[in-house]
């Protein structure tokens, strides 16, 4: 009789003494939200500062001290020697490397989840290597590779046609960006394909769709969100890259390379303006894709 009324766990009786409710209440209502605000603030402060200083009516060469509000920077966002070209190059490379790496990465991702073949495990591991390798190592190694194809007596001299990999420039930047983007695309796409029901493809074939039709009518629409996410990631990685690009760019300037080269002599407001634009553009794209996804789920 008494045994029934006893708690199952003998120590439970000791631990049932709760801390005062007041304290828990304060923890729930003040401490956790406060902590969250501080953590998010930590993340956002640099961005907020960048945006605020894009409206600075700065004096002299460096946009470091607040002198008053102006829209001059936003009216003339590209008004600095070399800036328009650098932005064009950056956008062009980001665009092309996104397309190239997304196509290659998607097919690698498909192959790695679809088929079991000798060395699949090894390739799965190798895919992570470019992500794990320090950028400075990849940059210097790519530089060595490219230079070797151009130099008289170099290792790759004569194998790759002259002018493709050497002298350094647009092509070498593009090749480097596609290369380091592929890993990120593969990983992102693979995550999406992992939840893919193969029977949907069997059903499509069963209903008379050949392999290609099945891919375009069933497989691709279903993995598209993953492919899109991978493409956005690739684009932002490419437009942002500095270290590898600085090794393989030769005399070509991308926006980060240009900004770094100019910053020793001046910090124009245009850097803040263009930086803000890239940020707002990214926010816009993410927002749109979220809305699209929410719609898709409801429909």
């Amino acid at each position: 009789m008494t045994a029934v009324s006893q708690p199952l766990n003998p120590t439970a009786a000791a631990t049932t003494r709760r801390p005062p409710r007041r304290f828990l209440h304060a923890l729930d209502h003040w401490f956790l939200p406060g902590f969250t605000v501080v953590a998010i603030g930590y993340l956002l402060v640099p961005i907020v500062v960048m945006i605020i200083f894009s409206f600075n009516d700065y004096q002299g060469k460096f946009n470091f001290v607040w002198h008053g509000f102006t829209l001059q920077g936003w009216f003339h966002p590209f008004d600095w020697p070399g800036l328009p070209d650098a932005i064009k190059t950056s956008l062009f490379i980001a665009f092309l490397s996104t397309i190239g790496s997304t196509i290659l990465g998607t097919f690698i991702g498909l192959a790695l989840t679809r088929y079991s073949f000798k060395g699949r495990g090894a390739i799965n591991g190798l895919i992570f290597l470019p992500m794990a390798t320090p950028e400075i190592v990849m940059g210097s190694s790519l530089l060595t590779l490219f230079v070797n194809s151009g130099l008289q007596g170099g290792m790759l001299n004569g194998i790759v046609p002259k002018g493709v990999l050497f002298p350094l420039g647009f092509t070498t930047i593009l090749i480097a960006h596609i290369m380091f983007n592929i890993s990120y695309v593969v990983v992102t796409v693979k995550a999406r394909i992992a939840g893919f029901d193969r029977r949907l493809e069997e059903a499509a074939m069963d209903l008379g769709a050949d392999e290609l039709t099945t891919f375009w009518k069933v497989t691709f629409p279903l993995i598209f969100p993953g492919v899109l996410a991978a493409a956005l990631l690739a684009f932002s990685l490419s437009i942002d890259d500095f270290i590898i690009t600085s090794f393989v760019s030769g005399t070509t300037n991308t926006f980060p390379i240009w900004a770094y080269s100019i910053i020793k002599n001046a910090l124009p407001v245009q850097i803040n303006v263009v930086g803000s634009m890239v940020f707002l553009g990214a926010v816009l794209i993410v927002g749109l894709s979220n809305i699209r996804q929410a719609r898709g789920n409801r429909a």
Partner: peptide
């Protein structure tokens, strides 16, 4: 034609 155990309807 086949009726699959999981139905395999195209969700999109």
């Amino acid at each position: 034609n086949t009726v699959f155990q999981s139905y395999a309807l195209f969700p999109h």
